[in-house]
Each structure stands twice: as C-alpha cells, then as structure tokens.
Design a protein around this nucleic acid. Sequence first.
DNA 1: ATGGCGCCCCGAGGGCGA
Length: 260
Amino acid sequence: MKIATFNINGIKARIDALPQWLDEAQPDVAILQEIKSVDEGFPRELFEDRGYNVETHGQKSFNGVAILSKLALEDVTRGLPGDDSDDQARYIEATVVGDHSSVRLCGLYLPNGNPAPGPKYDYKLAWMQRLEDRARALLAEETPFLLTGDFNIIPQAEDAATPDAWREDALFRPESRAAWRRLLALGLTEAFRARTQGPGHYSFWDYQAGAWNRNNGIRIDHFLLSPAIADSLRDCQIDKDVRGREKPSDHVPVWVDLDL
DNA sequence: ATGGCGCCCCGAGGGCGA
C-alpha cells in the first residue's frame, strides 16, 4: 500500500499540479495539508473521478487537511483531541483496511510556531503534547497507526542545508526537537531514516531567495510508524523532482510503501 | 531565513507561512 503525504499550499493554486502528480505517482492514499479551503469548496469530484474517496477537514483561508484514498475510509474523525477551544483545522484520522491488516491514518499539519518564543510557539509545543497524548492512547488500545504530514520539525542538523540559520527557529529549537524525540521514544519508527542515512534529503524549499536552485532545503514532512506496522515498511521516498515543475508547492510529496 | 516568494481574501495590501 502506497501512502503519501503532501503539503499542497492551497488546493486552488494546485488544481493542475496535484492531479498530475496523483496520475503518475498513483498512491493508494494521499494525505494532504494546507488545502486552504472550506470543505464545500474542495474540488472532490476531481479526485472521485480518479477513484479516490475524499475526506476533508477544512477552514477558510488557512490550514486544512484531507485524505484521498482508493480504499474505503472508515471511522473518520476530525480535530486533534485535548483542547476544545482549538479551532484550527490541522488534524484528521481514518482507518484503511489492507489485504491482511488495517491501519489508522493520522494526518497532521503541525503548527509552525514562529516567532519563538511567544504565544504561537506555546501553541506549537502544546499541540505536540496533545499529539503525544493521542499516540499514547492509540498504543494503549493496540491500534496499528501512522502519524504523517507536515510536522514543521527539522529533526537533526543533517536535515537542513544550512542548520546554523535555523538554530533559533521554531522548527529547530531544542524544545521542538525534544518534543519530536519524545514521540520517537514511544517506540515509533521514522520511516525515512529507517531506509536512508546522511545529509542532503529535503522536503521543503522556500519560494524566496532561490532556495530551490541552491538546494537550500529542509526535511520537515515525515512518517512515524507504530511498532505493529514498522516491520511492514518496504520503502520510503521523497518525490523531489515535483519541486522543479510548473507552479509547484513549496513542499514535495513523501511516501511510504507498506506491506499491509 | 527574509527585502527578495507565493498564497489567501470579493478587490488591495496586509496576514501568514517556514
């Protein structure tokens, strides 16, 4: 089962590039972030015509997540538990059933958190604590799951072309990376690093200052696999070439192939 | 790593992202 994550930076702006990538990459599941659309405004027919079931959790102008799946999506829930006052659309869950096992898909758009320190950074760290709590609950009930999406976390210095430029940034500050390591310490497997070592692998290049042409990128889009499905990992790749196309998002797709 | 880019919004320039 091929499962991809892709921060598309606006569905209206990616109305051609997203279907084009889907048609060639042929993921069974695509988990999207930053659709920047309300649910009613999401062009679901575009994907339904390609055989995808569509579940969205959107809001006006900002944020918004979605799951496209060629397999049926069951028990869809919207929003990250733990704060009823949080009205930002950043989280969606659904279950897909494979040939011999099912998996709970947790699609997330983790807050950026800049400027740090400050209230936006506090929100990011609190959100990460809620995510950890949610992962603990899924582990406790022995539900096989994966967390994927735009984590807005640079895990290590090797995940940035210019790490020194990020030292004070919310994506790389010690508290952010400590929260990331607490997730891993639950026993979760980071899919990309289970397959590929070393620097130079990025999933985001800023639109500004020629970042793409200079390969000044960061790796912030991730898959975390629960212990029950970690052994089913067959492959994990970054579709880097998508960044060099016509009217690209600033992120590129990352995908896993799981034997489910 | 921000001046620079690009997206959003009923309309123009400010908020936001990373």
